[in-house]
Write a protein that binds this DNA or RNA. Structure first.
Lengths: 343, 343
DNA sequence: CAAGGCCATTAAAACGTTTTTGGCCTCGCA
DNA sequence: TGCGAGGCCAAAAACGTTTTAATGGCCTTG
């Protein structure tokens, strides 16, 4: 008999009665075990097990003023990048005893607002968010409630704010530099909307690399801007490039989904990768290594991003006085595979 | 001035005072708008907006006895299959005003238990779970708390339980049948652990198809069982098959991740797909269509699975008396692409 | 004109914890 | 033996909402 009776939920009071102590003592066993005598403690713990007591999180939140949940708002849970981040968040949160409420905005501002509202209602202890645009106002209404916010995959512009990001300029420079190292002189950058910071930064990096190679970015770096960042858009980009004639020597895609679609389009058009055209993606998602011509990419520490962001957030929540805000910037890493194999 | 003053959180009492009504009336405006006079209602709503009031979810949960969150426990959030399901759950829950707490077990039973505990603490209104094994006992401790459970991608064995699943036997039969239709006579089934129900059911289906074609399953259907179900395992399976000589005419993989890895392994070994060997996967994840040789697959209504499961769950929670338990079984669908193009 | 019924609202209790305050008991020391 | 200190625990208030029972006013009806 290790579970309580069916259907009913057992409260701290019943545990207290059964153990012959007061509810306050049971609460202490739960939250400040060191403050209660060893013998009493073990007796209470025994009863807790016997009755199958589990704390009522809402009552706890109500009285304590804060919950043990954090909110995670991402732009596209279907993108393996965010999935990996979410896995990191979930693991770290779980280790620290927190639950994660997931909000997926799908890039829709209305959905994002609705999610923020839910987070506010749930009185999440803190919020992890990859903002879908640069508007800081929406976050203020959360912050004004006293909820800490950590930006994920987005550098904070203000010092009173933690953030965890990866240097996209370096990444863009590395990717383009790698293509140039392979002998390419005419590059294309296939990207999603340039209103997205990541896309824009990677473009800047690529331009830097082109300039550093003594070329004129305006001539040597064509830009193909697609409305979406998935495989379908990548394939359309390939068709566009092929139809336009005068293919570049090498192509840099703003993410791997685009690159995989592009790869397929190129192969279907009878082109060889990397012989006719080299190709590099971004994110190094699992599928990059598994595609027919394995895809070179720029690896980001996604899982780690999620873990660290969670750690920062909970440190800020639990130790507000000693907490030092940090804007962490990781460096991405080149992963060279077949799609950019140099001749 | 549409937001309340910074730092402090405004309660229902302050709204009541400001609007010149009692807290109970404000609560009624929130929960039973029809019970309050139109004029009073609009006045209260006005004040709510002005003060930026948002309901304290925990207080509400505590008093009302149930929350507006549901738990979602999946086996591997990194698998696009589950990601799609999660997206469906999240969308439907959000539409119905519920938040989703995500739990990822990574196939680890301990993590699953920990997640269930968190769900219990949070007093989730209901639970969606893809059980990682057949043990029903773990769920009983949740159900005994009065929390409704809907099984996802797993048929319920009991009539007092909702479930949403896809017929894996039909799927296996369809996949193998398609390969046989293409002229194959020697098949291989590359699968994850056969302790996983889905893997086993798909195998049964494949055996049925082979038998229906007048062949002996024991001879015509080789089975390659891998410990994992990702691309890496698929590639190793390819190496295994190639090294073993005597390749099959066609290969059926228990999921697309395996198939994509296998595809790469075959191509690297200089084999042509589908000319030398045909290949079909399972799940029809996005990447299946984007691989160099586009992958035939068995499509499951994943997103819909998530939506319907959520709908069933919340109907059960909100209308316990009128709710009729349902065990829904969808039929999967063949998606033929290049990897099984018949000569 | 009085009685009864209906409607909108209020007052107050309750949900299950946490936390503060204070009291008892024991132990050590003078 | 007396006193102070400190450890352990009990009692009670408080968190913000929901909900039930009660109240008051107004309208209808006899």
């Amino acid at each position: 008999m290790t579970t309580g009776s069916a259907g009913s939920t057992v409260s701290i009071k019943e545990v207290a009665a059964q153990a012959g102590v007061s509810p306050g003592t049971v609460s202490n066993v739960l939250n400040r075990p060191h403050k209660v005598a060893a013998e009493t403690r073990s007796r209470v713990e025994q009863v807790i097990r016997e009755l199958g007591f589990v704390r009522h999180g809402s009552a706890s939140t109500l009285r304590a003023g804060h919950s043990r949940t954090i909110g995670l708002s991402v732009i596209d849970i279907g993108n393996p990048f965010f999935t990996d981040v979410a896995a990191g968040v979930e693991d770290m949160a779980s280790e620290l005893g927190y639950a994660v409420i997931l909000g997926n905005s799908s890039g829709d501002r209305l959905k994002e607002e609705r999610n923020l509202r839910v987070f506010a209602e749930q009185r999440v202890r803190g919020l992890l968010i990859t903002p879908s645009d640069e508007d800081p106002g929406r976050l203020d209404v959360i912050r004004h409630r006293g909820i800490s916010v950590v930006l994920v995959d987005h550098p904070a512009h203000r010092p009173d704010q933690c953030s965890v990001a990866v240097n996209d300029i370096t990444g863009g420079r590395t990717a383009a530099g790698h293509l140039l190292d392979g002998g390419a002189t005419r590059l294309s950058y296939v990207t999603g909307p340039l209103t997205i910071r990541q896309c824009l930064d990677r473009k800047s990096g690529a331009e830097q690399a082109v300039a550093a190679a003594g070329l004129d970015p305006a001539r040597a770096l064509g830009v193909v801007e697609m409305p979406a960042m998935n495989a379908k858009a990548g394939q359309r980009a390939a068709e566009k490039l092929v139809a336009g004639g005068r293919l570049p020597d090498a192509i840099f895609c703003a993410n791997d989904l685009l690159a995989l679609g592009l790869l397929r389009g190129l192969l279907q058009a009878g082109l060889r990768v990397p012989d006719d055209v080299a190709l590099i993606g971004y994110d190094d998602i699992d599928f990059a290594a598994a595609s027919a011509v394995s895809l070179s990419s720029i690896r980001q520490p996604t899982y780690k991003l999620g873990r660290i962001a969670t750690e920062l957030l909970l440190d800020e929540c639990e130790n507000p006085e000693s907490h030092a805000h940090q804007q962490i910037m990781f460096q991405p890493e080149l992963v060279a595979r077949e799609s950019t194999r140099h001749p």
